[in-house]
Design a protein around this nucleic acid. Structure first.
Lengths: 306, 306
DNA sequence: GGCAAAAATCGATTATACCGAAAACCGCCA
DNA sequence: TGGCGGTTTTCGGTATAATCGATTTTTGCC
């Protein structure tokens, strides 16, 4: 049984005439005639009573043709579904973003994305890099915005921007007098870090390897603060417990009242933020839209990488 | 789009593996792979994300596969309908019977038919020969039991039985003394006839052409009794209004009390009862079943024609 | 019996479905 | 970085099926 055959019998039932049915199907009369016979043979029933005058349906034929129409309608729905899914920007894009980027990028990204692809919905997932990588491979999300290093099989990546780090101290801290802080100076202070799993913690430790040494000053507060967010850490710094390193995008004008923000001297530590997606993810236009939106986001303090 | 392709994508979605899907469809893996790609091209969307590890569905793919399953289910229904319609005895047979046969044949025919084809339902239509012929050509009925003459284009016929006619007189009628009645004698009496349209009326007139002459006896009751049935006529004869001619099957034991039944002398007038059906009617087995049932009906007084 | 209309059949051509073999791809691992 | 195993895709060749125009058969009608 083929869909063509079903279309033929529906046409014959509609036209009640093999010749006209053939014409309406844009095939020759023998073609249609043979196809109908073939279907009748396959089903083992006579669908039409042929006579010179007119063609009429057997009772089985009536039922079968009606059902054939239903099949063809369902086939139309398949085509409609495909048509709807054709626009790669149409469906929702499941986008993962790490904790230390999400709250600062999204307010800029969402409006920019609305400009680039108004019809595209975002389903957002905020998580650690490792978990996002896993979700990406499992197909639980389609793409992710993370920071390098990021290597995963079956995943393509694209650079978005480089983000410099800055030092945050409490108001009245001795470093306030300095124009810039050298990364080696951090070892002298209690540096508040995010909990393990946050890639930004690793970035900071990489920036200042001394922080990672075994022998820490006795009674040092320089320890991980489990479950903390950058906002929490910022409040702790403001409270005078220590200093910290922040990605520049996380610094808001509201921080001025509580903290002193200083740049690094020498080579500024940065993290490279990238967009990652499953290599096989078919809606490349959606990926491109996210990239464009990030570049157009006007995110302050970063170097966009085109 | 073909049903095969739909089966393939459903299999791939089920197995999440092209090779296994191909095996479950009993085709080679390249065959399935090409078919899936062809469908994807036709629909203009990617249905599956292929990677070495595993195959996953795109969101459009999920919807399309689900719909494809629905199509295949509907196709199954087509097959089921055909299967149900396969038994030519299964569906109801729409059988027309003329008024002067139906009440007398059916009581014998129905049980006999139940013997021959227990699963076959009868939809009965009682009407005049002319109307039955029309319905037969229109496909409103499938077959008809009528009396000759019966010529219709596109209709096949088959002899069933010859039915002799008899004369019915009131009790105490002078003819009671005679062993048999000659058809010419009928002209002497008031002969009650069915209304025009009943073929049996024509049979009687043919039997005794004198009845049809222009000059009827003054005040004669020998006229058509509009809308009468044989039963009504029988009661009128019993009431002494005249005599009539009956087909032998219409004579019941109950008539003995009211009527005197006499055979014809000489060549007995008869009517030939036949089975007619559209030449293209496909369920020949159903026709044959009716014929067999009639021959097995044990209808009294007739000569079955094998 | 001949005619006209319709469907079935025939012979030839074309398209397609399918296969096995080979190639390309990809993640993985040393 | 270069094999390796597993997977999908590509490639030729072949058998099947679809289709067509021409012809024949069927059937109702005069």
């Amino acid at each position: 049984m083929t869909l063509t055959e079903l279309r033929y019998i529906v046409a014959v039932a509609r036209e009640r005439h093999f010749g006209r049915a053939a014409a309406s199907c844009f095939v020759s009369q023998p073609t249609l005639s043979v196809a109908v016979k073939k279907l009748e043979d396959e089903l083992g029933v006579t669908l039409f009573e042929r006579s010179a005058g007119d063609v009429s349906l057997t009772s089985t034929g009536e039922r079968v043709v009606e059902q054939a129409q239903r099949v063809l309608e369902e086939v139309q729905v398949v085509k409609q579904l495909a048509e709807q899914g054709k626009d790669p920007l149409a469906g929702p894009l499941r986008l993962g973003i790490i904790y230390t980027i999400s709250p600062y990028l999204l307010p800029c990204l969402i409006p920019a994305l609305r400009e680039v692809a108004p019809q595209m919905q975002l389903l957002l997932e905020e998580n650690y890099t490792g978990r996002l990588a896993e979700m990406l491979k499992q197909g639980e999300i389609d793409a992710a915005i993370v920071a390098e290093p990021f290597f995963e099989g079956g995943v393509s990546t694209m650079q978005l921007y480089d983000e410099p780090f800055v030092v945050a101290t409490p108001k009245g801290h001795p470093w306030e007098a300095l124009p810039a802080i050298d990364s080696s100076q951090l070892a002298e202070e209690n540096v508040l870090l995010l909990s393990p799993g946050n890639c930004f913690r690793d970035h900071v430790l990489q920036t200042c390897p001394d922080l990672n040494r075994e022998s820490l000053p006795a009674g040092s507060l320089q320890r991980t603060l489990q479950g903390s967010s950058l906002t929490t850490i910022r409040h702790m710094v403001a409270g005078g417990i220590g200093v910290t390193v922040l990605p520049v995008t996380s610094v808001t004008p509201a921080d001025d009242a509580l903290l002193t923000i200083k740049p690094f001297s020498g080579e500024t530590p940065t993290r490279r933020v990238i967009l990652a997606w499953r290599k096989n993810f078919p809606r490349t236009a959606a990926i491109e839209a996210v990239r464009t939106a990030v570049l157009n986001s006007g995110l302050a303090g970063v170097t966009f990488l085109h």
